[in-house]
Design a protein around this nucleic acid. Structure first.
Lengths: 219, 219
DNA sequence: TGACCGTACGTACGGTGTACGTAGACGGGA
DNA sequence: TCCCGTCTACGTACACCGTACGTACGGTCA
């Protein structure tokens, strides 16, 4: 309350985004929220873009990566993916800000560092580990954007538009699948793809000589 | 040149986005591009949001879905995924607009219709087909956002920031993988994940006891 | 005391989307 | 021919945006 600082500004921004949406934030709005003049913000933040970087860092710092090195690598991958998805639950309206900003800061790179470590320990090396990492990031980012309503679901993402009435002649498959398309359990969807990816990774490892079904522990 | 219409406005918007980036577009800028008053645009487009919907539709209409029903389903999936990725090549700076707008129009739903048809013919039914569709969309969206520089690559996405110097003590894995992280062949990355997903889908089908010839191809 | 410096703040500029009112072109009865 | 309704183009105006700039105040040290 007494003096302004960067942390307070960022916290106010996150709070405002979660309350009123990412479109609602402006330097004036944040300043008003803090009961402070607009230009006072610029003593602690160089510009709006940097403030949004701060928002992304704050959200990323909030996720808990409880990595258990003794667990099987498949479970470690699942846990890390779920930890990242937690963002969409805890900060749904900030999610777009988080994923659309490439951070060169510690908070921004820790998830990648952890993921890469896990992939290496699982047995992926060099270029293949990086490819696995990038594929996972792509899947998770895409899933999060669906979950927070940026990307289409073909389900009533939010109750603003009820449901597009599709022409059965033009879209027979979409109509046939309408009952399944009308619902979107985000956790179940995420877990489905996650499991598919983990299995695919296990197969990829198994091709190299490990047993296929029961991936042996290589402790 | 003679009279204004929606198609011309949308075309000008796409053109402007590709030339100067999505941040550069504004109603005034588009009007100036067309040599027309700002408010004249509103005779043909209700608001800016609808115009962006038009941009997304125009880009989506531009992709060619050459579906060959006689091909193996794995190949059909690959072809459709690549057709969608073509957006990032043909309209890189419009890509974010395309994927962040959920369209209830024909152009917006055709890709999903085709994909769902392919998945059904491959043998996925009901809820599982929808889950496969959504997982594929998530992966493709995530890949496209990486490709157009929205989402982090950990490679020099564009030569504005040279390369973040990472602390080897904090990020040993990122440093160890720096040579592999420094490059990002978007086509290769996309194909890697695509192949993994297709194989995972084939395994999922195979687990159900389908005949061997449907088990999919290998790399 | 004076110099210095960081913080808070007001004002101002050029930009944004768009509501509203106006003016002209066009076409169809009377 | 005149009149009238409809459609299109356009200018103006409003509220808002990010932020460059100048100023005023409080504390710290010479």
């Amino acid at each position: 309350m007494s003096t302004l600082n960067r942390a307070k500004i960022v916290a106010a921004a996150v709070d405002l985004i979660e309350r009123e949406g990412a479109d609602a934030i402006s330097m004036r709005r944040i300043a008003a929220e803090l009961g402070v003049g607009v230009m006072s913000l610029y003593n602690h933040v160089p510009n709006k873009s940097a403030l949004l970087d701060g928002v992304a860092e704050a959200v990323l710092s909030g996720i808990e990566f409880t990595d258990d090195p003794s667990a099987h690598w498949t479970e470690r991958v699942r846990i890390q993916a779920r930890a990242f998805r937690q963002i969409a639950h805890d900060y749904p309206r900030s999610t777009m800000v988080v994923v659309s900003r490439q951070l060169h800061s510690t908070a921004g790179m820790i998830p990648a560092e952890r993921a890469l470590a896990t992939l290496r320990e699982a047995g992926f090396k060099g270029e293949e580990a990086v490819r696995m990492l990038r594929m996972f990031i792509a899947y998770i980012v895409g899933s999060l954007l669906r979950e927070v309503g940026v990307t289409p679901t073909f389900a009533p993402v939010r109750p603003d538009v009820p449901m597009p009435d599709v022409d059965p002649a033009l879209f027979p498959e979409l109509c046939a699948g309408a009952p399944d398309l009308a619902v979107c359990d985000h956790e179940a969807e995420f877990e489905f793809g996650l499991e598919l990816l983990v299995q695919a990774m296990a197969v990829r490892l198994g091709e190299r000589g490990l047993t296929g079904h029961e991936r042996g522990l290589e402790t």
